[in-house]
């Protein structure tokens, strides 16, 4: 039995920790809570919100990362629907608690000289997008109503395109 109740953390590599830490604290508002040695590198951990039970965000630095570079269309997407290798992060979406917070966040990012698209209305959430340091694409989202029935968004044509039958899609959309 496994009782996952939220995403705890996302860990990204950084070759420029000073710039990235400044971005995540000053622009996105994360609070630094740990800097520790780990294997051959250094781990930086930030608290996403202000409460001690909220998720964290983590950066990892080592000399090999510092000596490498992102590769566009492989490790780095150009935009929110850009190409990347399977298993690689295409974009990272953070939760804003409501539309007011999303609007304030968009204004804060723009005040820091970064171009933001949105907020756009995706039908069940509002989202804004921007690029961040080292090529990462961000989304910032707030749901219209977290209890909304999402089943109309399960598209049989999309499933069939990828070799998944409607009954299999229904099985995958129920609790195991």
């Amino acid at each position: 039995m496994i009782n996952i109740n939220k995403a705890q953390s996302v860990s990204l590599a950084t070759g420029n920790p000073r710039e990235t830490i400044r971005f995540y604290s000053e622009v996105l508002g994360f609070s630094l809570i740990a800097i520790q040695r780990e294997k051959s590198g250094i781990r930086v951990v930030m608290r996403i919100g202000e409460e001690s039970d909220e998720s964290t965000f983590s950066l990892y630095f080592d000399e090999a990362i510092a000596a490498s570079a992102p590769v566009v269309d492989v490790s780095e997407p150009r935009d929110p629907i850009g190409v990347i290798a399977p298993g690689a992060l295409q974009h990272l979406a953070f939760t804003c608690p409501d539309r007011d917070a999303l609007d304030r966040l968009v204004a804060r990012i723009r005040r820091n000289g970064i171009w933001v698209i949105g907020p756009l209305d995706h039908g069940f959430c509002y989202s804004a997008y921007c690029k961040g340091p080292e090529g990462i694409v961000f989304e910032f989202a707030t749901d219209h109503d977290p209890t909304v029935d999402t089943s109309p968004w399960l598209d049989p044509k999309t499933a069939q395109k990828h070799g998944v039958s409607v009954s299999e899609m229904q099985r995958l959309s129920s609790y195991s």
Binding site: I2, N3, I4, N5, K6, A7, Q8, S9, V10, S11, L12, A13, T14, G15, N16, E38, K39, S40, G41, S55, Y60, D62, A64, I65, A66, S68, A69, P70, V71, S75, E76, A88, L89, L92, G132, P133, E134, G135, I136
Partner: peptide, 16 residues
């Protein structure tokens, strides 16, 4: 090794 390109994801953690 935990090395990936700068900006790439090393891992995702889920909370229990």
């Amino acid at each position: 090794s935990d090395t990936v390109a700068p900006g790439a994801m090393q891992s995702i953690s889920f909370h229990v």
